[in-house]
Design a protein around this nucleic acid. Structure first.
Lengths: 225, 225
DNA sequence: CACCATAATGCCACTGAGTGGCATAAGCCT
DNA sequence: AGGCTTATGCCACTCAGTGGCATTATGGTG
């Protein structure tokens, strides 16, 4: 059991100490999502979570920065990979927004960890019900998009450092992906990454139309069929 | 003195009790911004703030929902007026995004309270340095844009309730305004509402370009004044 | 003006998140 | 094995936020 003959686990071949840390980290994430979903985020104390994983509270805070953070880990991972992808992606003469979309879809494609989809879904559903989790998530997205902006500025030294367009493009990326996530988690049944990718593409497709969308008091085809 | 011929104080003519509440509320906001700016948000305890205003902590939480909330009040007020404006604004055959921009600028125009500009500036500068304030602010914006979306759906009964375009338009409004705020507070000297309005218009102007902006590895010098 | 009903306030004790310090144990390296 | 490094556990502490209840101020009425 202790020795797997083939490199089945990609993040193996690490010093034992590191593997242990990763195991407790993963146990924390899984148990947290489970407990939070069962009893609610506010209805679960850190002491309970730590007791369930047989960890001291002190150790918890060496792994995660807050109670919210542990439940955000799945999404966190995606954006980390996104930033990594952005470091090496070639724009290829296409608009930044498309480049960002490609980077996000590529990152999504790399989230191959077992059960990732389900963890994201639990995480987002919790965030919908828990203001403090939602706030932390939004803040994290903001920090990530600033980091991405820094990458763009570093790799393609932009003429005007105050040009708002790259930043707005990043904000649209985040907005579109949030739309996609929301649609995705509202569907019943087992979620797949392919569906999330499809929803993401749909959301990006809707962006140009959102600039020109016009409302009348009794506008176009209202078919509340 | 009870009867002022002109409505000098708009929020007068209220029961004494209400006026007192408003006074302590305002005192809390001013003192909080002052203390937080001096000693830092985390360097100021609620007990200190309450002592300075001669209020019990219990009373503080009857006025504001959190320590962050009190420092967010100035921006909070703006969005409240924005939502109010949105209730009665006529689209006039123009794109929603422009309608939203108009509503925001109109709300800005109605923020006539003495020293509002300065309070917003202090508030935003604190948020830049304080993660928890930033997170709360982002979360508040998110809730506001959802409320605005609900207003749009109610007033103009949209054909497809799942149409992402109105929501994306709202997110762009928020993104553009955040850009404007950031530019505004980075300038030295006394801030004016007119300048903030100008920055807001600039940010909105940049939106279409952000969709098509293309990066090369050594892109040319686009100087959008 | 006195009186009661209705709030707002203050005080106290309590929970729970998050932190610092230090002793202990576990992994690591010749 | 030996010591060196690094993670962990434990303890005590600060501070945000809440519930309960007594106290005080306000508004309205006879």
């Amino acid at each position: 059991m202790t020795t797997s003959p083939s490199p089945t686990t990609p993040a193996d071949r690490l010093p034992l100490r590191e593997r242990k840390k990763l195991r407790t980290r993963q146990a924390l994430i899984d148990t947290a999502l489970e407990l939070f979903t069962e009893r609610g985020f506010d209805g679960t104390t850190l002491d309970e979570l730590c007791a369930a994983v047989e960890i001291s509270k002190r150790t918890f805070f060496r792994t995660f920065s807050s109670k919210e953070d542990v439940a955000m880990a799945p999404v966190h991972d995606l954006w980390t990979v996104f930033l990594d992808d952005l470091e090496s992606r070639e724009p290829g003469g296409r608009p930044v927004l498309e480049m960002l979309q490609d980077a996000l879809l590529a990152a999504l494609d790399r989230m191959t960890a077992e059960g990732w989809e389900n963890r994201v879904r639990l995480s987002r559903r919790l965030a919908e019900k828990t203001p403090s989790m939602d706030a932390h998530g939004l803040h994290f997205c903001d920090r990530t998009s600033r980091a991405a902006l820094a990458v763009l500025h570093r790799r393609f030294n932009l003429a005007d450092p105050h040009d708002l367009r790259p930043r707005l493009a990043l904000d649209m990326l985040v907005a579109a992906f949030h739309c996609a996530l929301e649609t995705w988690i509202s569907r019943p049944g087992a979620p797949t990454r392919a569906e999330l990718a499809a929803h993401t593409r749909d959301a990006f497709t809707a962006i140009p139309g959102s600039l020109t969308l016009t409302l009348g008091l009794r506008e176009e085809a209202q078919t509340p069929s």
